[in-house]
Design a protein around this nucleic acid. Structure first.
Length: 783
DNA sequence: CAGTGAGCGAGCTTCCGCTTGACTT
């Protein structure tokens, strides 16, 4: 007979707490929410004051059954879910579903997982806070209303299976608007002037010293004129200013800052970071990884202090308390930190180790002393000009936290390393000039979002939660609103003027400008959906919508307002917009553009989003002749496509001629251009232009493929024609009845007998069947 | 992962937050 049952949200947490509480307590986990609105139906009764219909989530049936059984055996049930809106709701759902007895049920919360904190929580139980629960219900119901009323509008007006929501739609909007800024951007050129002087260092050896002109020059003429003037100028140190400065460490990691730094320093994707952090957490190596808090427990601070002292001495310690500034932060957890600060490294996978190292350094650094620097600025006068050069040197006089950790920035490659020392200088000292250059520089256009910088922006706006950043990013990509890709950048010439040894020379150099990697860019569908939603539902798409509605949720939580009445207010504004938008019966589909007429037939040519994505259509359904369709190729976009480009799409597939009495045609499909012959397809190289390929080139391709096909067959069996050992892109494999199987490394493919192949297949099929259904489903879905 | 290449009139699709699924080259 169990005396006490404690229920927390996470199993890893349960394990730890059970150790602290001793044998009178059993600690189990609810694995997050156990109950939610029904999955497939709206499940909100508008007529009945927005009454929600909940059901136990299918994957939680077992969990609930188990909790029910354990609760029945316990004297007291302690609901110890997190102390935020969602956590309170979890406690309430547990209370309802497990049909707990109020006299034997207690609600407790704790902010850190230490024995003291937990014992203190047990001593101070309270009741479930229904106001907070109602705030959660309001949040949940609002999200369901928005998602389940807006998405069907998109199915009707744009394309089936699309989705819209309070969070994802704003995320897409950010990306679409940034893309427009990028496209509208016009860079401005100016000339940056750098002088190199020769100065004796402390040993009397001449060293170079770089100095920059105090302003940029607007035109080439101006730059030329200035350099001409410098030919006869004398340069002198006019002033030296030495200023001590300080740098302070960044706060410990939250989910969002961890994702950003892991992206910058380790090139992890947001999803990758979360997966690795989850593993570290489950292994008990770090604290909880979904948090918006920068707070460290007293224990962690004390531990950091000890560790820093041991490693580097007391001078490096400076304990700090950070406070969260993020909008709407709920702070149910600590910041992300090592569980045991004294463990500088841990035994784990290579990637996990790197992430742990980052977390450890960031945590330790946050409790370290400021770095002290000394910045020297030398002003250099020009005898025949009012302008001046400045040379800047910076030295670290005490490294402090920089000894361990330096935060990265998105534009790091743009920043120059200023941590260099100036040679000894004296006021009034004459300088020898080696050369002066004026280099044309361009203003930078705004950068496209990366996964991590999008997360930062969402957090700044208070949109989304630590647990949803990664899923949101994957959703908007899955819906094909956004793609992650690279832009090659363009070659750009720039002028360089150089004054050296009294002569002025001019050269034109080139650089690659605007190249980007792993950046988020909107697709045509993303743009069309965004423009449609922002036009008809401006309130939902407003960047401040979440922040505003959060204020109302807070008022519910504080008991100042009824949640149903807030829903009522929202719905009376929102729902009529849905109705009226659906009622618009425009002839054109959303985003459709008429490009013109087809020469000869006069049929209308239009571009729009079809069942399978962006397409061009010639003719329309009303006319006798069936309309013709063609998908847009990757290099085209709905916004910019011209009539000519659209008509070009219909020139394919075209017939090249005949080969071996069979037609050879060329077309372009989902995977690029291809040659078709005798019902077989042959991919053209990506660079080939399907419009100009000749018959001979196509035949060569066919022959080449046949040759490769021959070499593909390593072995076959007379007894069973379906059994083949083939050579594929990834090495030898077995193909049997349209399915493929791998061959273990240590086996020579040529030596395999038919029976050996069958055995391998049997082995692998058995393995696949014991694999969980979920995973196989995901694989099938991909197809 | 081991090859793909269509269709544009039923069906189904969708939200945001909590949490972990798993057997691996």
């Amino acid at each position: 007979m169990q005396k006490n049952l404690v229920i927390v949200e996470s199993p890893a947490k349960a394990k730890t707490i059970e150790k602290f509480l001793g044998k009178d307590y059993k600690v189990l986990s609810s694995y997050g929410h156990i109950r939610d609105l029904k999955k497939k139906s709206f499940s909100i009764d508008i007529e009945k004051d927005f009454a929600p219909t909940y059901e136990i989530s299918s994957d939680k049936k077992e969990v609930v059954k188990n909790l029910q059984a354990e609760a029945a055996k316990a004297d007291t049930v302690w609901l110890a879910s997190d102390e935020d809106r969602e956590g309170e709701a979890i406690a309430w759902h547990l209370y309802e579903v497990l049909k707990l007895n109020p006299e034997h049920t207690k609600r407790i919360v704790f902010h850190e997982i230490t024995k003291n904190a937990i014992l203190k929580a047990i001593d101070n139980p309270r009741d479930i806070d229904m106001n907070l629960v109602n705030a959660q219900q309001a949040r949940r119901v609002l999200d369901r209303i928005v998602g389940f009323e807006l998405s069907p509008v998109l199915w009707k007006k744009v394309r089936p299976a699309l989705s819209a929501g309070r969070v994802q739609s704003v995320a897409v909007r950010l990306i679409v608007e940034r893309e427009r800024e990028v496209n509208a951007f016009e860079s401005e050129a100016s000339y940056r002037v750098i002088a190199i002087f020769l100065v004796p260092d402390k040993d009397g050896k001449m060293v170079e010293m770089k100095a920059e002109l105090n302003r940029r020059l607007k035109t080439k003429e101006e730059a030329e004129q200035f350099l001409e003037q410098c030919k006869t100028a004398k340069f002198k140190i006019e002033n030296i200013a030495v200023k001590p400065t300080k740098k302070s460490p960044a706060a410990p990691f939250t989910t969002s800052t961890l994702q950003q730094e892991a992206a910058r320093k380790l090139s992890f994707t947001v999803a990758q970071t979360m997966m690795l952090a989850q593993k570290l957490y489950e292994a008990g190596l770090i604290t909880y990884m979904r948090t918006d808090s920068v707070n460290l427990s007293e224990y962690a601070i004390a531990d950091s202090k000890q560790t820093i002292t041991n490693m580097m001495g007391e001078r490096y310690v400076q304990t700090r308390h950070f406070t969260t500034k993020t909008k709407g932060a709920q702070e149910a957890h600590e910041a992300i930190r090592p569980t045991y600060i004294e463990n500088e490294s841990v035994s784990a996978g290579a990637q996990e180790k790197r992430l742990y190292d980052l977390i450890w350094k960031r945590t330790i650094a946050s409790q370290m002393a400021d770095a002290e620097l000394e910045k020297t600025t030398a002003t250099i006068s020009i005898s025949n000009s009012g302008d001046h050069f400045t040379a800047v040197g910076e030295v670290i006089t005490f490294d402090g936290f920089l000894r361990i950790y330096r935060e990265s920035y998105d534009d790091d490659n743009e920043q120059e390393d200023e941590s260099r020392l100036l040679p000894p200088l004296a006021k009034g000292q004459d300088l020898v000039n080696q050369n002066i250059s004026a280099t044309e520089r361009f203003t930078q256009r705004p950068p496209r979002y990366t996964e991590a910088s999008l997360v930062r922006k969402l957090e700044e706006l208070g949109i989304g939660r630590p647990s949803t950043y990664a899923p949101t990013i994957s959703t908007i990509q899955q819906r094909e609103y956004v793609v992650k890709g690279e832009k090659p950048g363009e070659e750009r010439p720039y002028n360089v003027l150089l004054l050296k040894n009294g002569t002025l020379t001019q050269t034109v150099q080139t650089e690659i400008a605007g190249a980007e990697k792993a950046k988020l860019m909107p697709t045509d569908t993303g743009i069309v959906v965004n423009d449609f939603l922002t036009e008809f539902f401006p309130n939902i798409l407003n960047y401040n919508f979440t922040a505003n509605i959060e204020k109302e949720f807070d008022e519910i939580a504080d008991g100042e307002k009824e949640w149903n009445s807030i829903m009522h207010n929202f719905y009376t504004d929102f729902h009529p917009l849905v109705e009226s938008t659906l009622a618009i019966k425009g002839k054109q589909k959303v985003g459709e553009r008429i490009l013109g007429e087809e020469p000869g037939t006069g049929l209308p040519v239009s571009v729009k989003i079809g069942r399978f994505g962006p397409m061009v259509q010639i003719g329309n359904t009303e006319s006798e002749e069936k309309p013709r369709f063609s998908r847009l190729t990757k290099d085209l976009s709905m916004e910019t496509i011209t009539l000519e480009q659209a008509l070009d799409l219909f020139k394919l597939p075209r017939t090249l001629g005949e080969y071996e009495d069979k037609e050879v045609t060329i077309g372009t499909g989902r995977f690029g251009p291809y040659v078709r012959h005798d019902d077989k397809y042959f991919s053209l190289p990506k660079t080939a232009d399907p419009m100009s390929v000749t018959l001979d080139e196509a035949i060569a391709l066919i022959e080449e493929k046949r040759e490769a096909e021959k070499q593909k067959h390593i072995k076959q069996f007379e007894e069973d024609a379906e059994m083949l050992i083939l050579n594929g892109r990834y090495g030898p494999y077995i193909s049997y009845k349209k399915k493929n199987y791998k061959i273990p490394q240590n086996i020579v493919p040529q030596d395999l007998s038919l029976q050996a192949c069958l055995d391998l297949i049997k082995l692998q099929t058995e393995k696949a069947e014991t694999a969980p259904a979920k995973r196989r489903k995901a694989a099938a879905k991909k197809k």
